[in-house]
């Protein structure tokens, strides 16, 4: 059995209530203190830190709002990779594997777990590099399947329902004004013409008062 690995992150990084000033500057209410130890399902702690550093460059925390670190994107990715998706249970993986035209998409043998493991390894001690070096390094691998996968996963982790591990405190949805899976806009569709309708977002679990069985929790 694999050794239990944890990612230790400051509690302030994980969500919280996001507010905007009148000038549109984001700030978070009630920053908690302390640290949270998140048990990892797939990554080692070193890999998680490495992946987190990449995600933070793709979707940074800056003046325009919080980013991948605050949303817990790396936790989302860890869970996806640990589940059946990471093991390619939803991809056609029979051979022969051939070199074909780009119109046929990714044709490689490696599943997402292998793509990450190899991709992270190829970056060396990425998390320890100075910021400018990190950006340069990512620019040099922009076109790779690995980088494109991390980019896609970062967007998913920012904006998927928080039950999947990312979008902590619904900060992704707050930033773009998505209300979550609301049951009805039957009245609102008429009432909010010409002005943004921005109710406080709610997650599926908050709306339904129960949580569905998630694909990433299925046996892989």
């Amino acid at each position: 059995m694999r050794r239990r690995e944890f990612l230790t992150i400051p509690a302030t990084a994980l969500g919280g209530t996001l507010l905007y000033t009148l000038a549109g500057e984001p700030f978070r209410l009630q920053a908690q203190d302390g640290k949270v130890k998140v048990p990892l399902r797939f990554f080692t702690e070193a890999e998680a830190k490495q992946a987190q550093a990449i995600c933070a460059l793709i979707f940074p925390s800056d003046a325009s709002g919080p980013g991948a670190t605050e949303a817990g994107v790396v936790i989302y990715i860890d869970r996806q990779l640990a589940g059946p998706y990471g093991a390619d249970k939803y991809r056609y993986t029979k051979g022969p594997f051939t070199n074909t035209v780009p119109e046929h998409g990714y044709q490689g043998k490696e599943n997402p777990r292998q793509v990450y493991r190899q991709g992270l390894q190829s970056l060396g001690n990425f998390a320890a590099l100075p910021a400018a070096e990190q950006v340069k390094k990512l620019e040099s691998i922009e076109k790779t399947h690995f980088f494109q996968m991390v980019r896609t996963h970062t967007i998913e982790g920012m904006f998927a329902d928080p039950m999947h591990g990312g979008n902590a405190g619904l900060i992704g949805w707050q930033m773009i004004g998505f209300p979550g899976p609301q049951m009805s806009y039957r009245e609102e569709i008429d009432r909010h013409r010409g002005q943004p309708y921005r109710p406080k977002p709610a997650s599926l679990e908050q709306i339904m008062h129960r949580k569905p069985a998630l694909m990433e929790d299925e046996k892989s």
Binding site: E156, D161, H164, P181, L204, P212, L214
Partner: peptide, 8 residues
């Protein structure tokens, strides 16, 4: 109702 999940 529990399927209103964009990701899955």
């Amino acid at each position: 109702a529990l399927g209103m999940d964009e990701l899955d």
